[in-house]
Design a protein around this nucleic acid. Structure first.
Lengths: 110, 110
DNA sequence: CTTTACATGTAAGATTCTTATATATGAAAG
DNA sequence: CTTTCATATATAAGAATCTTACATGTAAAG
């Protein structure tokens, strides 16, 4: 059955997907998600930061403080091997959710 | 942007979709959702009943007590016109969510 | 009689996401 | 130079959804 966490938790997939392309800090992550979905998906930073923290606890991502060129302190997150491994079954589950919802529509007037 | 309620709330779409086919009571609704999604989506009745109540408050469905052939008391829900109207923009939003996630990275066979 | 299927609910709790608030620096505009 | 905008991180309070566990009762089947 499709896991409980999958039905909400769009953000989790979004973060892992974007981080797959390379390490990023929170602020930029939020912008990428918005850009890459053409504004369809938007997460406020207040939603994002606690989630990054949770994902770090689960060892899916690892954060490290760094100082950018312009002297700003920021926390840069990268996927861990565990996070990479998580991604493909996660996508699989999402795919199954899509299918399930599509079936409901079809069968609903079959 | 995709509404906050859409990212969770699979159940809402599922219930409305199944009720589109005709009036049903809660217990049977749960079974239909499970059957029609081939077991991929399952909602416990404990999740379903409070939701049916909420949806009735919003006037998307209307419940009526009836007595079945075998003398059992049960609450039969049907879509209201408002509920029917809700369905198509709801599906539209879901469709946009799928698209957005696919854009982030290819989700297995979209 | 005892278990399984039918049928409805409540309670406690975890999790996720929202808005609002707080802090602080660098760069650009006036 | 000083206000404002973009960068950057974070917490708090609260709404909404979904989970497990609990509670109740009838009917049919073995």
């Amino acid at each position: 059955m499709i896991g409980a966490g999958i039905k909400r938790g769009t953000a989790e997939l979004a973060v892992l997907s974007v981080l797959e392309d390379g390490p990023l800090h929170g602020y930029e992550l939020a912008r990428r998600i918005e850009q890459q979905t053409k504004g369809a998906l938007r997460f406020t930073l207040a939603a994002l930061y606690p989630m990054l923290y949770r994902m770090e606890q689960r060892r899916w991502i690892r954060g490290a403080w760094e100082t950018s060129d312009n002297g700003r302190r920021r926390r840069c997150y990268r996927l861990t091997p565990a996070g990479k491994k998580k991604l493909s079954p996660l996508r699989q589950e999402w795919s199954e959710l899509f299918q399930a919802l599509r079936r409901l529509k079809k069968v609903a007037h079959a």
